[in-house]
């Protein structure tokens, strides 16, 4: 693990039954670095970032997040999850709680924050994602884009050092994608360490410090966006980019 890495994956292997989803994955992420992960479906991108907060368990190799190694140790898992926020493709808001309650829940229960303070924090987060007026509605009453922004606010309320995005715009109607990406760009400009799995190449060009291309469970190519889009090394990357950019 290099000195200033905040996330470090070393020779990570993972199987679902007989099927190997991750093969010898090595990835170092520095503090405040923005990584965009892309690749065809089934290439293991989601599985990789889900291993970083232990929603999936890796079977071989080492994953170290902010100096804490992820093993079966529940205490370590809890401390890593407090460091790492995650945004899902399907938003996964809690439908029985109001928007405000969705956001205050973890600060109140995990950080033992007083309720009034947590609510103030929630309103601040909602202003960051530009929907403070929706605080008392329920998730089912919001549009997809609004729901995803609430999900981002919910993660941010825990003051994470790292944010993981698992295809955050894939379930959205086209006209709602921009409002979510705008929030993410602002977050990136604020200096958040981010790993984003996405097919939004425009977004990748704007914010990424480094592109990671995966196929069949391996990291095929890692490069700065400029080089990645204009002069990729691997043929597999070229093929993927030609398919994704040419329509």
């Amino acid at each position: 693990m290099s000195e200033n890495s905040i996330i470090s994956l070393q020779n990570v292997n993972k199987w679902f039954g007989d099927f190997q989803v991750l093969q010898d994955v090595n990835l170092e992420v520095k503090k405040k670095e923005r990584i965009v992960v892309c690749g065809p479906s089934g290439s293991g991108k989601s599985t990789m970032i889900r291993c970083i907060n232990r929603l999936e368990e890796h079977q071989e190799g080492t994953i170290i997040v902010d100096g804490i190694e992820l093993t079966g140790n529940l205490k370590n898992i809890d401390s890593v999850r407090r460091e790492v926020g995650m945004v899902f493709q399907q938003f996964n808001l809690f439908p029985h709680l109001s928007v405000k309650e969705n956001i205050t829940l973890a600060p109140i229960w995990v950080k033992k924050m007083p309720k009034a303070e947590a609510e103030e924090l929630a309103m601040k987060q909602l202003e960051i994602v530009k929907i403070p007026e929706q605080a008392n509605k329920y998730p089912g009453q919001l549009s997809g884009g609004q729901q995803q922004r609430v999900a981002i606010a919910r993660s941010l309320a825990m003051k994470p050092n790292i944010m993981l995005f698992d295809e955050p715009t894939s379930a959205l109607d086209p006209e709602m994608i921009k409002e979510v990406l705008d929030v993410m760009i602002e977050l990136a400009e604020g200096g958040m360490t981010m790993i984003v799995v996405t097919h939004e190449m425009g977004f990748a060009k704007t914010v990424a410090d480094r592109m990671v291309f995966m196929d069949e469970g391996r990291i095929v190519e890692e490069a700065a966006p400029d080089k990645f889009f204009n002069n990729p090394e691997s043929d597999r990357t070229k093929l993927f980019l030609s398919q994704i950019l040419n329509h």
């Binding site: 907060n53 809690f94 995990v110």
Partner: peptide, 8 residues
């Protein structure tokens, strides 16, 4: 997953 990811 959402509940776990916020640290509950």
């Amino acid at each position: 997953e959402a509940a776990q990811s916020v640290g509950l």
